[in-house]
């Protein structure tokens, strides 16, 4: 027995799941299982308590739907990574999600792990949280009292607050005007583990950057915005030398935290490269 005995529930509707989640004590939600099961095994190995009840969301069809219209992409929280990867809706500013999905872990994990699971366990071993913050995604939660709650991805990752609501979907606004650049570095060419990534989104007004968003993903640590760099870029013309100059205008605190010399060097390399990419794509809004 690799994990402690527990009671397993498989509701088939969201309402059923919500009721179970609120009424059962000592309960965890099961999405893909790739995080939860390893976590439970680890807790048992350490002699710690594990939940009495598991509520599986696997059989709730409405949580697996992906749809898109003129304005919004909607991703059901139980959407499996590979299903998102194969979705025909990933164009415009959503196409970066294809890259992110492709980079996640290994194939069987991509067949099991879910978008919602990835976000709610705040697993920054992948790049999903950083990209969601960058694309200004909204996370939609539902409580058993029927109360809906929308939290922005940025807010969600800033406060590690626990909630008794279930994540039902993620929405991202379609944006044809934004220019996006993304750089990621792996730990080594021989492994599939990301070391860091940099997300940049901007708009061009004449020859200037505006409304720039820079999200720094320090893998296995955190994902957050670098507002110092954002401010610098927003006040700068998009000329060629700006990428090098930008390296003197970083929120150093972010990059030094839990970062080896090599990682800090690669942050700089990636930031410079991302800014150069933005300038290059200036005439093509979506890379």
């Amino acid at each position: 027995m690799l994990i402690h005995p527990l009671t397993f529930y498989t509701p088939t509707t969201l309402l059923e799941a919500l009721n179970l989640y609120s009424s059962l004590g000592d309960v965890r939600l099961l999405a893909g299982g790739t995080f939860l099961l390893n976590n439970l095994k680890l807790l048992k190995k350490k002699g710690m308590k594990t939940p009495q009840n598991i509520v599986s969301l696997k059989k709730i069809g409405e949580l697996r739907e992906i749809s898109a219209n003129e304005k919004t992409l909607t991703i059901g929280s139980m959407t499996v990574i590979n299903d998102l990867f194969n979705s025909p809706f990933l164009c415009d500013n959503f196409s970066l999600l294809k890259t992110v999905c492709r980079n996640i872990s290994t194939q069987p994990i991509r067949n099991m792990a879910t978008v919602g699971g990835n976000l709610t366990c705040r697993y920054t071993w992948t790049e999903m949280p950083a990209v969601m913050i960058g694309l200004e995604a909204d996370l939609h939660f539902m409580g058993s009292d029927g109360q809906a709650q929308i939290i922005s991805a940025e807010e969600f990752f800033k406060n590690a607050a626990k909630t008794d609501k279930i994540l039902t979907r993620v929405t991202i606004k379609r944006d044809k005007k934004a220019t996006i650049a993304y750089r990621r570095v792996k730990k080594s060419p021989f492994v599939d583990i990301p070391l860091l990534s940099i997300f940049m989104k901007t708009y061009f007004e004449g020859d200037r950057f505006t409304d720039t968003r820079v999200v720094v993903n320090n893998c296995v640590a955190f994902a957050q915005r670098d507002r110092v760099l954002e401010d610098f870029l927003n006040q700068s013309p998009c000329s060629n030398g700006i990428a090098q100059k930008a390296l003197d205008h970083l929120d150093q605190g972010i990059y030094r935290l839990r970062s080896s010399d090599y990682k800090q060097h690669m942050f700089r390399v990636s930031i410079k490269s991302a800014i150069e990419q933005l300038i290059k794509s200036r005439n093509n809004p979506i890379p």
């Binding site: 397993f8 498989t10 299982g33 790739t34 099961l37 599986s56 994990i109 099991m112």
Partner: peptide
């Protein structure tokens, strides 16, 4: 899929 991280009941 990986059977070591799949609940049989699921």
């Amino acid at each position: 899929v990986l059977s070591c991280v799949t609940f049989a009941c699921a």
